[in-house]
Design a protein around this nucleic acid. Sequence first.
DNA 1: CTATTTCAAGACCGATTGGTTCATATATCG
DNA 2: CGATATATGAACCAATCGGTCTTGAAATAG
Lengths: 204, 204
Amino acid sequence: MRHQSPVQLPRGRPRGFDVEAAVERAMDVFWSRGYHATALPDLLRATKLSRGSLYAAFGDKHSLFLRALDRYIAIALTRMDIELDHRREPVDGLRAYLAGYVDRNSGANGRRGCLLVATAMELAGRDADVDRRIGSFFKAMEARVAGALSRAKAAGKLADGVEPSSAARILVCFVEGLRVVGKTAPTRIISQATVDAFLDRFIR
Amino acid sequence: MRHQSPVQLPRGRPRGFDVEAAVERAMDVFWSRGYHATALPDLLRATKLSRGSLYAAFGDKHSLFLRALDRYIAIALTRMDIELDHRREPVDGLRAYLAGYVDRNSGANGRRGCLLVATAMELAGRDADVDRRIGSFFKAMEARVAGALSRAKAAGKLADGVEPSSAARILVCFVEGLRVVGKTAPTRIISQATVDAFLDRFIR
DNA sequence: CTATTTCAAGACCGATTGGTTCATATATCG
DNA sequence: CGATATATGAACCAATCGGTCTTGAAATAG
């Protein structure tokens, strides 16, 4: 093995802030205000960066937004990978997955909405970078749900006539609709009952 | 009967433009760009009004937006009232209703999105006037769907165990989710198949 | 006719937008 | 130490924002 290449440390003052943490703070702002309604001062306040530092680190508002969106997507997919882990009983996984949506779309949590849905509605079709991300996210989401449904079907847990791939598309629409309707802050009771009734139509 | 009160005509130059048509033009702009991304010049171009006339007629951007949103809601509810007319066979009505969503959420139509969903995501929770409208719209929509489902149930057309009121909530989430996913411009074939598979879970 | 009203066009307003630049302080290296 | 690199924060920029106001033409009523 070659000896370690000499990773010449930079000489000057070291980076004094956590870039990823700043992305996450920015994500929070975009999340609760949307892209257009977020002004530079909002981002500066949230990231606690100066204008100069922010532009040096991220380029511009749009680039920072894409970083934040990517972070949001990564978190969402990671959560799905845990909830729908293939070593888990698939119906339990689906229940856990939907329970997460109940959580995120009831009451005050619901008001916060979803950065992805908000971005899709605000920017999709007008921003190619966003288009790609939204499209591939929905694909990835659908694939994971379809996988869990396939496993459930193999275990004989699906209702008669349920086909995993089309059921996955239905489920994706349903949960994204939850995020929209969640903006009117329905109670947790109602949300949970709706999700339960939904799942009842698909599992045995 | 009293004789007609003397409707003193105004003296000056008569109104030279159709206010409702202007609202509809403005609605189109807000629809395809969203609230924040719509600038005054966009509205002036679309309505063919001068700044002065627009402000005289509508007050400000926000008021005009609310008028446009109300118009959008009125159109949507009118369409539902036709599609889900209680004199019609309820399952046919639901099919027609969902067919409309397939139409509006496939390909290029899908890209356009939905003014209501976009507004919900962009403004709900930060604009009380919008909140009221969004909330009451979803309520009205759910009530109409629940009505059709009740009639279907009475006619023995619903699958076993389907309860009209919770099924209505599910259906509202599903179609609003269609509007979100429609932003990625799925094909009409896929959308139609998804809707068909969805309905199959609920009707006999 | 005059009085009245509405129209378009554009000048104008202060505030804010996203973005750049620069001087200065500070921290870490060889 | 001196060289290097990064931070800050304010000054600055042109452009645009939503909104007001004025001007002058046009159209109707009495």
